[in-house]
Amino acid sequence: MELLVLVEHRRGEIREVTFEMLTKGREIAQKTNSRLNTIILGKNIRDKAEVLARYADRVLMIDDERFEFFNSDLYQQVLSNIIREVKPILTMIGHTSYGVDLAPSLAVSLNIPLITDCLDLDIQDGQLTAVRQMYGGKIYARLNVRKSESYIATIRQGVITASEGNLKGEIIELPPPDIVEPVKKKFIEYVLPKIGEVDITSADILVAIGRGIKDQANIPLAEELAKTLGGVLACSRPIVDKGWLPPDRQVGSSGKTVKPKLYLALGISGAFQHVIGMKNSQLIIAVNKDPNAPIFNVAHYGVVEDLFKIVPILTEKIKELKKKTS
């Protein structure tokens, strides 16, 4: 059998989710006695293909300037043909901004069952099963996919630990493909994040607020605590979405990745997209009134309590302490 992993790369770098998928792919390939293929579309990508050859049995490469930038329209046309030719039992694509733009329409056009945002997956007797999260990570689900000769799955980033590659895969350069369908979508440019006034990635102490802060008027409460601790205020996405704090304060997959000495999470549920940005902090303390909030699965210490009862007292006590020691 054949397995296929789509390489995700941007601005000269292969994205980590690729190696995570290739690690999973190798595990499934060994178990099912399959061949692991990976495909990379891009411009001037020979060096990348050589890196990838350590991770897959075959690297399919299309080096063509039309693929300099990701475009799901173009990718879909090319991948449809590759999938028809290679006939992989499973095609893996990252559940990323690129993957979510590509996989659903690709699957529909090929009429191949797709399962998105998988944390884990397995093939037994030609049947695909997967594990996913629901309800912001509070519930897990095991799913069966309708029996088929081919499946597509998108894989959540940052869940599988990528292992080093030690294979010597073959690199096969494919000829530039014919693009037959009209391309209705066109890449124009990247927009880089604005450089903010604070750099939360270099702070030793972060006090992070989530939707549990309830109102913009309550933010000074957390800010005061951050200041007293000698730290900086950070937040989850809804706080930025509401315009209460600027985007450079956001922690998570679409914000910053931080590793402070202390991460104090106040009223943050711990959705995956948030956790991926802070789980490697040295000390995580979370305050949340819901004992089942997923944040408690990554926190070292947890407080099940109304944050408004804890924060003022904590601030006061630290102030006292600082007075004593100074």
Binding site: R10, F69, F70, N71, T96, S97, Y98, D101, K184, K185, K186, F187, I188, E189, Y190, V191, L192, P193, P247, D248, Q250, S253, S254, G255, K256, T257
Partner: peptide, 13 residues
């Protein structure tokens, strides 16, 4: 459209 880490891309459709 939003990419990861605060990056965006502009596309025309």
């Amino acid at each position: 459209r939003e990419l990861e880490g605060g990056l965006e891309e502009v596309v025309e459709v």
